[in-house]
């Protein structure tokens, strides 16, 4: 028999839980593509055949300078994200969308001055058996089977006579499947954008991918000519990243 006391306890619990929930608000973080400062659309001179990114470790910087880890909200039960990792698909006008164009952050109300996130799949998930992986890591096209990992970022771009095709992921790996796999090059760039205000969108400026190479490729092999530009733009070398910026 349920006593009054027990009922009260349940109600109190629910109330407390609900209260804890309401301590965060949801804020949308949209992503989009720019080319020479202009928004990329279906009719842009730049053709985006594919552009996907895995992102994780999202955090906001408080005015004090302290970084607050941010969980992703998945109220809509999207197949392209879970609480900790999201798959972005930023190619415009697609028939088969393979990811999100924005993520929903669970944010503690307050003022912030910066946002940061990491591109890639966290190490703990990167070498799992992809056949058993849960969304959004269950997509064959983004699994990098020959390195037993994932394509953290996937670029397939064309402009005028030039093409850019990049697969970014951890490389130089040794170990056994199902056991421990260690990689010499993690290749998970951290993107830090200062002076961020809640609600601001993030833009990727793609013009810089087109260099003097007519067909730039980085498919994770040491001889690939396009890797230097890719790594440099993403801030994997000594200089900071030059792709991501905050929009108005």
């Amino acid at each position: 028999m349920v006593t009054m006391k027990q009922m009260m306890l349940v109600i109190a619990c629910l109330w407390l839980f609900g209260c804890a929930e309401s301590k965060t608000e949801t804020v949308i973080l949209p992503f989009s593509l720019n080319f020479e400062g202009q928004e990329v659309t279906c009719s842009s001179a730049l053709q985006v055949n594919a552009l996907t990114l895995y992102i994780h470790d999202l955090a906001l910087q408080e005015l004090s300078g302290q970084w607050q880890k941010v969980e992703l909200d998945n109220a809509l039960n999207s197949p392209w994200q879970n609480e900790s990792i999201a798959l972005l698909d930023l190619a415009p006008c697609q028939t088969n969308q393979m990811g999100l164009t924005s993520v929903v952050m669970k944010v503690k109300p307050g003022q912030y001055r910066g946002v940061r996130f990491r591109i890639g799949v966290p190490e703990a998930l990167n070498h799992q058996d992809p056949q058993l992986a849960r969304a959004p890591l269950d997509i064959n096209q983004l699994q990098w089977h020959w390195t037993v990992g994932y394509k953290f970022a996937y670029f397939d771009l064309a402009w005028r006579e030039q093409t850019v095709k990049h697969h970014l992921g951890s490389s130089g790996c040794v170990g056994n499947i199902g056991d421990d796999i260690q990689c010499k090059y993690q290749n998970r760039p951290e993107i830090v954008l200062p002076s961020y205000q809640l609600g601001q969108p993030i833009k990727l400026e793609l013009r810089q991918f087109f260099t003097e190479l007519p067909h730039a490729r980085c498919f994770g092999k040491p001889q690939d000519k396009g890797c230097d530009t890719l790594f440099n733009l993403l801030g994997l070398q000594d200089a900071p990243q030059r792709i991501f910026r905050l929009g108005a």
């Binding site: 064959n140 096209q141 020959w146 390195t147 697969h167 040794v174």
Partner: peptide, 29 residues
């Protein structure tokens, strides 16, 4: 030349799904 490919079942994913080079280009399941 790939010491990571220690399991035959896993290895089959390469010809099925690889895009560099493309081999069988199988569809999603």
């Amino acid at each position: 030349a790939n010491p990571l490919q220690t399991e035959l079942a896993f290895q089959a994913l390469i010809p099925l799904f690889s895009d560099d080079p493309v081999e069988m280009a199988a569809s999603e399941i």
